[in-house]
Amino acid sequence: MNELVFFINNVVISGTVAGSIYAIGAIGITLVFSIMRFAHFAHADLMTFGALMVLMFTSLFPGSGALLGIPTPLLMLPLGMAMTAFLAIGIDRTFYKPMREHGVKPIVIVIASLGVTLMLQGLIRLFAGTGSRSMYVGESKGIYRLELPFELASRPIVITEPQITLILFTLVAVIGLHLFMHRTRTGKAMRAMSDNPDLARVSGINTDKVVMVTWILAGCLAAAAGTFLSMDVSLTPDLSFHLLLPIFAAAIVGGVGHPYGAIAGGFLVGFAETLSVFNWAVLLRPIRHWFPEWVEIPRTLALVGTEYKIVVPFFILVVVLVWRPTGIFKGKVI
């Protein structure tokens, strides 16, 4: 039974957490990709920026979350989201929009977004240093240990407060996004523009407004993902660089332009990662007696070592690009 608890702790919970982070990030990527038609590399740095803003506000007003009974970073999250959305719109106005109007190839904007990545990283490290920080200023992270009511299970299931809020936030975000995209005029305009920008423009849709709403959504979601990830682990300036590949893999697996695909892709990538670094020998040991005598269960039986975790999203990306470049939900190949 302890083995099962181990499995739940190491695969179910951490897979869900990683999947939620990737899913929230991938929604932003896929929105930008389908509406402005370029791969936005600076997205992961928007996450770091959002987390940094939240940390800044948290250090300014430490302990203010206790008034409402929630952790302070969570209280400051809307502020961080607003800042990140502003930053995203600002970046678009200064760098991407002039290039778009200039009619350059999309790949040039991709390179510009890499330039923006470097600028953001440079600024973040210049002002926040290169070390890692905890998001909790003068508070402690809530950790829940759920004892199982079985005789054999002596270990508890461990889940932390930010993990629970993250999963709840993902649910709310998904439902909210669905309602927004299907029930509101702006959401419908976004879908129209993602299908055919020229047709959308001639039918009187304000494309500038759609672009702005896209950046607001992308910025808010990025800030949330970055904050939850930093609350779960810690805030490091190079947080973003390791996230970039899984997020892009998730967006492409799900089909570019499909927010639901991005969610599915995010969870697929997240679970694939945790499943392939999971040590399966732990699960095999209790059923040792079912195997013939000569079979020897090795001490570690993981598909890849943790140091090669990054290979997993890349492998998924390659498989999808070879077999089904449209993604599992038939997105666009643009």
């Binding site: 290039m99 510009a112 330039g115 470097l118 210049l126 290169t130 070390g131």
Partner: peptide, 23 residues
């Protein structure tokens, strides 16, 4: 850690250079 931070300023400059040249 001023010196390690000063070097990060170069990251910013490289990024700015890329975007400005492209623009």
């Amino acid at each position: 850690n001023l010196s390690s931070r000063a070097l990060q300023a170069r990251v910013f400059v490289i990024g700015l250079l890329i975007t400005l040249v492209l623009r």
